[in-house]
Design a protein around this nucleic acid. Sequence first.
DNA 1: CACCGCATGTAACGTGTTACATGATTCA
DNA 2: TGAATCATGTAACACGTTACATGCGGTG
Lengths: 188, 188
Amino acid sequence: MSVKHALLALLCEGPRYGYELKAAFEARTGDAWPLNVGQVYTTLARLERDGHVERDSEDVDGHVHYRLTDAGRRETRAWWDSEVTREAPPRDELAIKLALALTVPGVDVRDVLQRQRTATVRALQTHTRRRARLTSAQRDGTAPAGAGTTAAVLVLESLIFAAEAEVRWLDHCEARLLRTADPNGARP
Amino acid sequence: MSVKHALLALLCEGPRYGYELKAAFEARTGDAWPLNVGQVYTTLARLERDGHVERDSEDVDGHVHYRLTDAGRRETRAWWDSEVTREAPPRDELAIKLALALTVPGVDVRDVLQRQRTATVRALQTHTRRRARLTSAQRDGTAPAGAGTTAAVLVLESLIFAAEAEVRWLDHCEARLLRTADPNGARP
DNA sequence: CACCGCATGTAACGTGTTACATGATTCA
DNA sequence: TGAATCATGTAACACGTTACATGCGGTG
């Protein structure tokens, strides 16, 4: 549903065509989630089918612009007015994997934990470096200092916050693992 | 891919039938992500198609047990040996939504932020309460103190860590928003 | 000319969700 | 007897990803 609503939101600024939408999406999310062009078109087709967008007149270059319908505007409004539910968040593969690693025989949980920690720390560094590049470009004026860049920085920071929490959680898991596996930890 | 690999992992403990797999999955994930039974069957069918599992002999009650094939065991092994990549994490609807709310005209970002904060805090409380219920049941002996309950607690804690990080991020967004919107914040 | 990037699609596939159909068992 | 739960499925659909086809325009 993210892509669908994102396209609707972008079309609030005015009619756009496929490649523009892809570029606008990636600019605002700091290339964190590259968007396949094909998906833009299929999503646009579904939005048109559902009456949320319609084809606009083609411009001089023959680009196929889409614009919001009233129903699309209502849909977008409803999106802004609703919260992203975190009571039942999307299944987290990592949490599931560790929960199973704990209970299934023949799995070295410590090994899984440590390898994952390395991977997550590496991801954290990637995001941090990207953020540094973005903010310095913003200062230099290389990147436009508009709301788009600010949004991209915030997106990267959400990834950073999440990765940091994940590292903490992995350490927490390892600590608890030591406590339960080591019988003389609690009562010496 | 989570469900597929989870079923494979559960079948490492021995042949099981559909409802058992659903129950086992939910026991280990603390009901955090209820699993539709239908999906168990469709996933099993696809695993059978791919040669990762095969039908076992039916038991006295006529239950259709499935067991791992060698290919399935290899697939599971490969899962344990690989990291869950966080360089390109699944698209986060909340981050996308806020990034767009910042740039699209006619959206009250502060309002979106505050309503989301409330929702996330509520989710955090839900997870915390569930965790408390689980650990107390574990102490009472109401719940089995095995690895399954430990796994469920860790899963809930991953949700708690993530929700806490999200609240911090939302506050961070609001602070940055104030700074950029308020022109006399940086240079008095 | 050949190649690359832009631009618009389409087809096939994988995964996940919901709703429905069907039968057996259990229990008030 | 009637309702609820267990149990095994199927069908239809939504979303996402990848790969491919096609044409246009500029550039080496």
